[in-house]
């Protein structure tokens, strides 16, 4: 038996997952090949060490189940509100199977029901309770900007402002960044400076500055005049080709900002000497 074929079977041999004939071939080869024997010894020692893994303590099942319930409830609500197209298609398909005489009134009735049901559900979604907010905060810990943006667009402004004021500064920063119309949502992780962003269309909150803070310090992303809370385009992004990739870049005060669209997200970089580092960052992301 060839070396590589034998070696491929080592783990199966160790775990007694081989048929008798193959196991016998492996054994024969091992007795006559020093290098394979050494490789087998290493793998079997690795297996013996791996068998020392102990079972971990089980999680708090009740708490996990409760959280899953909340997540499912939230997703079900959102799905209801968002799947209007699918609902309409479903009704049309259903109506097609009815007799022609009742098709029209049935369709009108179904669409009326659909409209009312969606309005009710949407109203429920857009009028969040504190519990609802808390759940979203917990859910979107790393997507807090998304949450804030959704609240800014859909929620009660007063409730939103109260929540906003009571949040840690890094979360305020996320919404402040939104207020500068930098992004429609910002994936800002707590204690992290880096975030993903998309272009913003709407905004209801404002701030005179945007601070992204971490335990070790803070950064002022954009300065903004109090009397121009929504001066869109103050820092106009320029499109530029760096190392074969299109970036949108701008100088914002002493900070350089660059945004880059990857396959999965739009990433915003911020740094004082950022532009020189961009080719390195591209390579870094490429390898991660």
């Amino acid at each position: 038996m060839m070396h590589y074929r034998t070696r491929r079977h080592f783990s199966a041999y160790l775990d007694s997952d081989l048929d008798e004939a193959t196991a016998s071939k492996v054994l024969d080869h091992l007795s006559s090949c020093i290098s394979c024997e050494a490789a087998f010894k290493k793998i079997s020692e690795g297996a013996r060490l791996a068998s020392q893994f102990e079972q971990s303590a089980p999680p708090d099942a009740a708490q996990l189940w409760a959280k899953i319930g909340q997540r499912r409830e939230l997703e079900a609500q959102n799905r209801w509100g968002r799947n209007l197209g699918r609902q309409v298609a479903g009704i049309a398909q259903w109506a097609g199977s009815l007799a022609p005489t009742i098709r029209k009134p049935a369709m009108i009735g179904a669409f009326a029901f659909l409209l009312i049901a969606n309005l009710v559900v949407s109203f429920k979604i857009l009028t969040p309770t504190q519990t609802h907010l808390a759940e979203r905060v917990s859910r979107y810990d790393l997507d807090y900007g998304l949450y804030l943006d959704a609240m800014a667009r859909d929620g009660d402004p007063k409730e939103f402002d109260n929540l906003y004021q009571s949040e840690p500064v890094e979360y305020q920063a996320a919404s402040a960044a939104i207020s500068f119309e930098l992004a429609s949502y910002i994936r800002l992780a707590k204690d992290y400076q880096i975030f993903d962003a998309k272009l913003l269309k709407t905004s209801c909150c404002y701030s005179v500055q945007c601070k992204i803070s971490s335990g070790a310090g803070e950064i002022v992303l954009f300065q903004q005049e109090q009397d121009h809370p929504f001066s869109f385009g103050r820092y106009q992004l320029e499109r530029t080709l760096i190392d074969g990739h299109w970036f949108h870049v701008t100088q914002a005060g002493k900070y350089q900002v660059a945004s880059w669209v990857t396959r999965t997200s739009k990433i915003v970089f911020v740094g004082e000497q950022l532009f020189d580092e961009l080719p390195n960052l591209i390579r870094l992301i490429g390898t991660s």
Binding site: Y192, I194, S214, A216, F269, V270, L281, L284, I285, S288
Partner: peptide, 19 residues
């Protein structure tokens, strides 16, 4: 993990001592 490692690498490279 993919998301975590990307975030970690970016954080490490850009922020230096921030974390």
């Amino acid at each position: 993990e993919r998301w975590q490692s990307r975030r970690y690498l970016l954080d490490k490279s850009i922020n230096g001592g921030w974390r």
